[in-house]
Amino acid sequence: MMPTVRLAFSPAPVHVRTARLVGVAVARRAGVAEDLLDEVRLAIGEACTRAVTLHRQYGLSDLVEVEMTDAPGYAVRVIDRAPIEAGLGLTTLPPDELADEALTDEALTTGVGFALLAGFVENLQVRPVDEGIGTEVRMDWPVRR
């Protein structure tokens, strides 16, 4: 088992490439099958691009965070600090519905911007960050030990 790898970068498109490169290197080390590495690269790139776009759209200088671990499979978390409604693609829902904790993962992943990402990742979760500001995109892939 490898330790958790964490990246944090300023919301600039140029850093997305670095996140993709690190993500694929960590995936390879974790034991993700070679035929899934393109999927990993594309998914990490899309999730990081989404976070950078949200930060720039809202004028946020907060760092985009990426966390990678291999327990139990290879998991990548990309965290932005944009308003939750924007990050979840739910800006058309009334505030009382946004506060509803019964929103399913399926409802959260059907927002604009998630269709492409959902095509790359079989196990995709999108949820508000614990602190209440921002969203976490979590993606998982199987590993071979």
Rank of each mutant, 00 (worst) to 15 (best):
V78E: 10
F120A: 06
V66R: 10
G31T: 02
V22Y: 03
R127F: 10
C48M: 08
I44H: 13
T109I: 10
E85P: 01
A99C: 00
G73H: 06
R17E: 15
G31I: 01
E34W: 00
A107G: 00
G59K: 08
Y74D: 05
E131F: 04
L42T: 08
P94Q: 11
E39P: 00
Q57G: 01
Q125Y: 07
L116H: 06
V5S: 07
R81M: 09
P72H: 05
A43L: 05
A33F: 04
P95Q: 03
V14H: 11
R77E: 14
D62N: 15
P128G: 02
H15R: 09
T53C: 08
T135Y: 01
G59A: 06
L60A: 05
R127M: 11
M139Y: 06
I84N: 03
M2F: 08
R29A: 15
L88H: 01
T53N: 15
D35V: 07
Y74I: 03
T91Q: 12
G87P: 01
S10T: 12
Y58M: 06
T92F: 15
F114M: 02
E39I: 00
D100M: 08
A99K: 01
A8Q: 15
L42Q: 12
I133K: 12
L90S: 06
A82T: 03
A51Y: 06
E67F: 00
D38V: 00
L116C: 04
L117N: 03
R138N: 05
F9K: 12
V76A: 09
W141P: 10
L7F: 05
P72T: 07
M1R: 12
G23F: 07
L88C: 01
A99Q: 02
T49R: 14
V24L: 02
P72N: 05
